[in-house]
Nucleic acid binder design. Structure first.
Length: 566
RNA sequence: UGAGGGAUCGUCUAGCGGUAGGACGACGGGUUCUGGCCCCGUUAACCGAGGUUCGAAUCCUCGUCCCUCAGCCA
């Protein structure tokens, strides 16, 4: 059984917190936060951050807040704030009473900005966006002071209040911190704190027409919420100087510690919001919850479990170096969980008709098959057996290669939970020569799958009774991209050119055992010998079942075939 | 080449002056009414060069390579 009491492995952030607690910092408290901007759906990269922040808080007896960083109304939407909450909850985390929005702090943030102006640490700059860029300098050359840098405090105050009152057009004025235009850290060259945006906000409506920037908002929001450890990704490393500057210049409740870690990269997929949006908008996938997407909603629909995602996030660790985790590890984690949870059933993806010549016409037997072969006490279902069956087309080869030990002419195999079956003759399509059916015989002495004479077979096949099978559609998924790093593309091409044309295969003629007729969305199934499957929560209907393949089983035969091919 | 970061098995990660360990993958074997699960084994790493030390992945020096920053995005 997979266990929930997973040992939290050591990582540098845990070590920092451990040391802080030992030193009595923050009074021994640990409060973290997960601060998404509601401008897209959550993906596996967010899952890493969610598990880290909520996991740390839980592990140290603290709390983790969910805070929407909603300071850019033009790009944000309630659709996203809803999906984000659903996804975090689905992952199994609880923010308790701590659901916050940066927009809840707009009044206080404004007051902080006034404070900064009053202490001469901020000014209203009336340069155009283009001029600001030119004045900023470059990586190697210092910037130069804005001509508006020395406005009086009174003038700045007046202008700032008038910005708030809506007297100016977008782009005409901004509030800037007065720090150092020649700082080697470009972030510190009088960064913008507030800009004018005459757009409605999804929570504050038209109350505001000036909105605070990330660097000003985030540190103050953390402080207002008494966050002790503000964990973010590496690209904010340079911003830490500004995070600390703002909190040092202002009289704030506390000064949280910003700690950066490396964001998650996963092979054969992309984990950047910008790229995921592009996949959705350009129709390369059916939506944010397309089962091929590395989004939480996509993976949920695909059949991934919260438990598997937790385990994955623990196994990948947390560090400061850029890295790309092998997709095989994610697949290992979901197999590990589903191996424990999934009901074993039989379904044939590519049916091949089998006629058992010596089986009585019109006879139907009811065979009992356990849902969990390793734990038969967990229940079973009845599987009908009759003269005509379907087996997997891949399980028969007329002229078998070495090491293939499934069915071929003259060879005997076992039908799972049923009888030994021997292939006698092969029926071909007269036009194409394709194999269309097999005439076989069975051994009545082997009912249940055992041979009284002790003879062995080298393979056991899954099957369904043709007369009783339920037709179904099965969607099998492969990597969304053909390359481990989709962004590694030939000249001029972008990552879209790396999309795998076979990432989705729809199989319309599948035959599944009758017990699956009342399959439900919450149950995970293993189609024996094939993989793990679940009902598609969006498209499946009771009279037209659609299954998603979550992941294949490990497949030794695939490997042998590949080895033989090389 | 301004500033800030980072380099440990193929991949991810531990290590905090004292035998470089784990996981995934790969490879081989055992078991098996799933070529699954499970079990056993093998493979395989400290970016380089110096230095300090009885002893260096760890401390120091000098290199090399990689990442981030020039939004009124976050």
């Amino acid at each position: 059984m997979a266990s929930d009491e997973t040992v939290q492995p050591s990582n540098f952030i845990r070590n920092i917190i451990l040391e802080d607690i030992r030193a009595g910092k923050h009074g021994g408290q640990v409060t973290t936060r997960f601060p998404p901007e509601p401008n897209g759906y959550l993906h596996m990269g967010h899952a890493k951050s969610i598990c880290l922040n909520f996991g740390l808080a839980k592990g140290f007896g603290g709390e983790c807040h969910l805070r929407f960083d909603d300071t850019n109304p033009g790009k944000e939407d309630v659709e996203y704030v809803e999906s984000i909450q659903e996804d975090v909850r689905w992952l199994g985390f609880d923010w308790g009473a701590h659901l916050h929005y940066a927009s809840d702090y707009f009044d206080r943030l404004f007051e902080f900005a006034v404070q900064l102006i009053q202490s001469g640490k901020a000014y209203v700059c009336s340069l155009s966006p283009d001029e600001i860029r030119q004045y900023r300098g470059t990586l190697t050359e210092p910037g130069k002071n804005s001509p508006y840098r020395n406005r009086s405090i009174d003038e700045n105050l007046d202008l700032f209040y008038r910005m708030k009152a809506g007297e100016f057009e977008e782009g005409t004025h901004v509030l800037r911190a007065r720090i150092d235009m020649s700082s080697p850290n470009i972030i510190l060259r009088d960064p913008t704190l507030y800009r004018i945006r005459k757009v409605s906000h999804h929570r504050t409506g038209n109350t505001w027409c000036i909105y605070p920037m990330y660097d000003f908002t985030h540190c103050l929001s953390d402080s207002i919420e008494n966050i002790t450890h503000s964990i973010c990704t590496l690209e904010f490393e340079n911003n830490r100087a500004l995070y600390d500057w703002v909190l040092n210049e202002l009289d704030t409740p506390c000064h949280p510690q910003q700690i950066e870690f490396a964001r998650l990269n996963l092979s054969f997929t992309v984990l950047s919001k910008r790229k995921l949006i592009q996949l959705v908008d350009q129709g390369h996938v059916s939506g944010w919850d397309d089962p091929r997407m590395p989004t939480i909603s996509g993976m949920r629909r695909r059949g991934y479990t919260p438990h598997a995602i937790h385990n994955f996030c623990e196994r990948i660790g947390v560090a400061r170096r850029d890295s790309t985790v092998d997709m095989a590890l994610l697949e290992y984690c979901i197999r590990e969980d589903l191996n424990d949870k999934a009901l074993r059933v039989m379904g044939v993806l590519n049916p091949l008709k089998v006629i058992i010549d010596n089986y009585p016409e019109n006879q139907v037997e009811s065979l009992e098959a356990p849902y969990y072969p390793d734990r038969p006490e967990m229940g079973s279902r009845i599987v009908p057996f009759s003269k005509e069956l379907f087996i997997e087309a891949d399980d028969f080869i007329e002229d078998p290669p070495k090491k293939f030990f499934r069915l071929s002419p003259g060879r005997e195999v076992r039908l799972r939970y049923a009888y030994f079956l021997k292939c006698e003759t092969v029926v071909h399509d007269p036009l194409t020569g394709k194999v269309v059916a097999l005439h076989c015989t069975y051994d009545p002495e082997t009912r249940g799958g055992g041979a009284p004479d002790g003879r062995k077979v080298k393979a056991t096949l899954h099957w369904v009774s043709a007369a009783h099978a339920v037709p179904a559609e099965v969607r099998v998924y492969n990597h969304l991209f053909i390359k481990p790093d989709p962004t590694e593309t030939p000249d001029g091409q972008d990552f879209i050119s790396s999309i795998n044309p076979d990432s989705l295969q729809v199989l319309n003629h599948c035959m599944i055992e009758p017990s699956l007729a009342n399959a439900d969305t919450n149950t995970r199934y293993q189609f024996e010998r094939l993989g793990y499957f679940c009902l598609d929560s969006r498209d499946s209907r009771p009279d037209a079942l659609i299954f998603n393949r979550t992941v294949t089983l490990r497949d030794e035969w695939e490997k042998i075939k590949k080895q033989a091919a090389t």
